[in-house]
Each structure stands twice: as C-alpha cells, then as structure tokens.
Design a protein around this nucleic acid. Structure first.
Length: 264
DNA sequence: AACCCCCGCAACCGCACGATT
DNA sequence: CAATCGTGCGGTTGCGGGGGT
C-alpha cells in the first residue's frame, strides 16, 4: 500500500504564490508559528494550499532571515569545499551559509557552479595527456570507491609539484613520498594516498593541528588521524583493510581552482 | 517588432526517516 | 512490531524574463 497523499491536489491551489497568499502566510506565522503541524496550517491560515507548499514557501522565501541575491565569492568557496567533501547534501551545506536555503544552494550549484566544474573537468581531460596531470586531485569531488579504483583497492590523488605548494602556501609536497604511478597514462608525480598518513614530516608541514582517534569492533580496527587539510585512516579487519586519505585543500579563488580528493 | 532560445529560480514530486499510535 | 503520519530532503520541472537574431 502506498503512502496516502498529504492533501487532495485537485482541491488545493498550485503554482506561484500571490502577494495576498504570502501576506496571509506571513501574518499567520508571525502570530502563531507552525504550531508543529504544517499539514493543518493552511486551513488555520485560510490558505487553499498544500501544507508542504506552505512550508516550502516560508522556508525558502518568506522567512525574515532569508538572504536574497547572488552568492558571494566566500559563499561559493564554502559550497565548493563542502560539496567536494559531502556531495549533494544541500541542507548541510546551506546550514553553513547564514540566510541561504538548501534550495538556494542547490539552484546555485546546478546553474552556476556545476558548469564551472564541468568546464574544468573538460580542461582536465585535455591536459591529462600532456605533462600537466594535476587535475584529478584538484577538481574531483568525492569519488566513490568503486569508481576510483583500478583494481578495486587502490587509488591515487594526482598532484603537481608546480601548483600545490602555491595553493597550500607552503612546501609540503617536498615531503611527500612521490612514487611512480600504476597507470601508464598518468605520468606525472602522483601521490600515493596511503603515504600521507605514514609520513610525519608531511603532517607537520600541512597543519599545526592534529587529532587522532580510532574505532574498534570485534573484527576490525580503524585508526583515524585528522588534520586541518586532510584526514587519513588505516585499519585492519573486514571493513577497513585499506589505508585512505581525504584531502580538502579548499578553493583558490585567484586561480579559480579547488583542490580536493579522496583515495585509499 | 516579433520570435526564439537560454537561464535562473520558484515550486512540485516522491521518497526516506523518525515519531507516534 | 507494524501501520500511519508529519517533516525534511534531494531531484526535477516548468514558468517567466532577458538577450539574441
């Protein structure tokens, strides 16, 4: 048996809200709040609307603290960084942007930022056959394990020693243990991700703050090290037989790139 | 001036989840 | 424990405005 619809769609008004409806909803919300029940609200407020529609209208448009207008560069940076780490969890991203709603962030991503990303990905594809192979790590959002793996259990974050030090405003690349790539097509300096967490010099050059923790079950142990710009893990057991790295070096607006990656 | 196309945004839809009965 | 309900979320749609031809 399917879910019962929240309202009779043939009997409620749909489509754009009129100024009168907005005023009625605002007035009701000002005096009563939701009363903990959006479904009953339209009737109480004298609105011939679905409760979900009222909720959406209020949260995305009528709320007094809503910020309208274009996104600032700083807000873009937050969206880039969070999207690269957690994906399309718009409500979580929006919670980090005061006055912005999940719908705002989603629309902004779909209409502006995604196109930027695609444009860069195109450039990435164009350059991976040349001597510049940094783009996978610089542009990729989190890549699912199965898609990022050559043989199911290994992956690399590709980087470029010409660019990374500038982006990170430091010289950490010098400390990485650079190895030859496993894939012939990637011929520049890849950073084997499992090396991040095992190289003490690397960690100290990236960040002054560091936390370590571990998770244990009867069958597995997962050790976590969290740094400002990346987190590494290594473990044993059924669920965690691989070392991994989550890199978040943020967005560099002057170069119009963001650097973020995931590997194990 | 008329038409077309593209883009941005508001709104809708369906599903998942937690709370309640 | 299962059914029901309300809410929140992410994906998608479609309208309207603006720019180009």
């Amino acid at each position: 048996m399917g879910r019962a619809p929240c309202c009779d769609k043939t009997k409620v008004k749909r489509g754009p809200w009129s100024p009168e409806e907005d005023a009625a909803l605002k007035h009701y919300m000002h005096n009563n709040g939701t009363g903990g029940n959006w479904i009953a609200l339209p009737h109480k407020a004298g609105l011939n609307r679905c409760g979900k529609s009222c909720r959406l209208r209020w949260l995305n448009y009528l709320r007094p603290d809503i910020k309208h207008g274009g996104f600032t560069e700083e807000e873009d940076n937050v969206v880039w960084t969070l999207y690269s780490n957690i994906g399309s969890r718009w409500s979580v991203i929006a919670s980090q942007l005061p006055g912005r709603t999940d719908n705002d962030v989603k629309n902004h991503w779909n209409t502006k930022l995604k196109k930027k990303l695609l444009a860069r990905s195109t450039n990435c594809n164009e350059t991976t056959n040349t001597t510049d192979h940094l783009n996978l790590a610089r542009f990729s959002p989190l890549i699912p394990k199965t898609e990022n793996s050559d043989q199911g259990n290994s992956a690399y974050c590709y980087t470029n020693s010409d660019t990374l030090p500038y982006l990170m405003n430091g010289n950490c690349v010098q400390n990485f243990d650079l190895k030859k790539p496993s894939k012939p097509s990637y011929s520049s300096n890849p950073v084997q991700v499992s090396d991040f967490g095992t190289n003490g010099n690397t960690s100290s050059s990236i960040s002054s703050t560091r936390e370590a923790s571990s998770l244990s079950t009867s069958s597995s142990t997962l050790a976590m090290e969290n740094y400002t710009n990346f987190a590494s893990w290594s473990g044993t057991g059924i669920e965690s037989t691989e070392d991994g790295i989550l890199v978040d070096l943020g967005f560099d607006s002057s170069n119009d790139v963001f650097l973020s990656g995931f590997g194990f």
